[in-house]
């Protein structure tokens, strides 16, 4: 099944900067993809389009073979429940514990308590933080905080996981830990799309690499490397 498909996508911002130019792309279920390219090449725009944080200027986007371009605002929340997101700055809530931060993602989409009590410990085991359930974010290292963020993105078992520079603030050793978790999540069948600058990670993983430059795809390579 085609999990993500973009047809002739263009994105021009209101100040007339062209962020994406004529993007055509198919990502199949279960793929692991690196989206690489320098700052300003359109990686973040790409991710924002997929979760409809912004709208495309023209073209069509299909998620799980359904066109999301003309979604009503009430449907956008449904779309986002099927796409987990991880960011460089973690976006954790500082007044909530690790458990509460992850549970929050389920609470706000109306999951019942018993389900939350089962799923949250499960996913925290997956990211290796089961022993830190009651810690607050400021008591955790940067790597641990990012793992909480991954747990939150994945706790609802979305078929797609998007990660925007998830290792951007981490040292190489810690980044490797995050990559192991993302690989594990991918192995379960989740489609993972990760935007990154991190040459070493891309080169060591040998997955499909899509390279953007000035809003255009200049390379799409199976088992690729970061580039020159």
């Amino acid at each position: 099944m085609n999990m993500i498909e973009l047809k002739n996508i263009n994105k021009i911002y209101e100040d007339n900067t062209v962020a994406l130019k004529n993007i055509n792309l198919v990502i199949r279920k279960g793929e692991f993809i690196f989206l690489v390219g320098p700052s300003g090449s359109g990686k973040s725009t790409f991710i924002k389009l997929l979760i409809k944080e912004i709208d495309e200027s023209n073209g069509n986007i299909y998620i799980a073979e359904r066109n999301i371009c003309n979604l009503k605002s009430s449907r956008i929340s449904q779309l986002r429940r099927n796409i987990g997101c991880v960011f460089q700055d973690y976006k954790l809530l500082s007044n909530k514990t690790v458990f509460e931060n992850v549970a929050f993602a389920l609470e706000v989409i109306g999951k019942p308590v018993y389900e939350i009590k089962i799923r949250v410990p499960q996913v925290l085991k997956l990211v290796g933080l089961y022993n830190k359930l009651n810690s607050y974010p400021h008591q955790l290292s940067a790597g641990e905080q990012q793992r909480v963020s991954v747990a939150r993105a994945f706790v609802n078992r979305p078929p797609i996981l998007l990660a925007d520079e998830p290792t951007g603030n981490l040292d190489p050793g810690t980044a490797e830990g995050i990559m192991k978790i993302l690989s594990r999540i991918n192995l379960i069948g989740t489609t993972v799309l990760m935007a990154t600058h991190d040459r070493n990670i891309v080169n060591s993983m040998r997955r499909r690499v899509i390279e953007l430059e000035e809003g255009e795809i200049i390379r799409d390579q199976k088992r690729g490397v970061y580039g020159d």
Partner: peptide, 17 residues
């Protein structure tokens, strides 16, 4: 605002927010 941002990100409906 941070909570609202996270809520939207994980797919809370507008009414829920």
């Amino acid at each position: 605002r941070k909570e609202i941002e996270v809520m939207k990100l994980v797919g809370a409906t507008n009414w829920f927010v």
